[in-house]
């Protein structure tokens, strides 16, 4: 495999579609197929998987011919940090309450930007966090703990 295949836009897209199509068909083998008149739960997904493989194959072949590169660099760092910030929110909101979850989320997400100014992020967290608490916890009365064991009571 030539190294620039890893940067070939359509080749990669085609590969992704084929992989997902094959996965869909492989998993659907455990589901009863049935026939066209009386389709089982496996019929529709298997057909879809097949079609996805076909489209994927066509995209892949076109990629090999045209050799179009992915434009720009991959932003793995922002992707990783943004993803982490969302995961942290999910993990903390149930265990520690919404305020720690929001603090962790804001600081991790803000680190994904080009500039990170501690005071600014702190201020943003306080302002936006207060807004969110006002709308969702106070206004809509969603039952979230603020801190471990601390609830909004009015």
């Amino acid at each position: 495999m030539k190294p620039d295949l890893f940067d070939n836009r359509d080749f990669l897209a085609g590969l992704l579609f084929i992989a997902l199509g094959v996965l869909a068909i492989a998993v659907a083998r455990d589901y009863p197929m049935g026939v066209a008149m009386r389709m089982g739960p496996g019929y529709f997904p298997t057909v879809l998987g097949g079609i996805l493989c076909l489209f994927g194959g066509a995209v892949l072949v076109r990629g090999l011919r045209s050799g179009q590169q992915v434009s720009g660099d991959w932003g793995w760092r922002p992707l990783g940090l943004i993803t982490l910030s969302i995961l942290l929110f999910g993990a903390l909101v149930d265990r520690l309450g919404i305020i720690p979850a929001l603090v962790a989320m804001f600081f991790t997400a803000a680190a994904a930007g080009r500039e990170f100014r501690f005071k600014e992020v702190l201020l943003l967290t306080v302002v936006m966090g207060a807004f969110a608490l006002g709308v969702f916890v106070y206004g809509l009365k969603l039952p979230y703990a603020l801190f471990p064991g601390v609830w909004w009571t009015s």
Binding site: I86, V93, G113, G129, A132
Partner: peptide, 16 residues
């Protein structure tokens, strides 16, 4: 840099 963490916040709370 102020907007995107705020959008992420709405996304998280919205989903949760």
């Amino acid at each position: 840099r102020w907007l995107f963490p705020s959008i992420i916040m709405f996304c998280c709370i919205g989903n949760f």
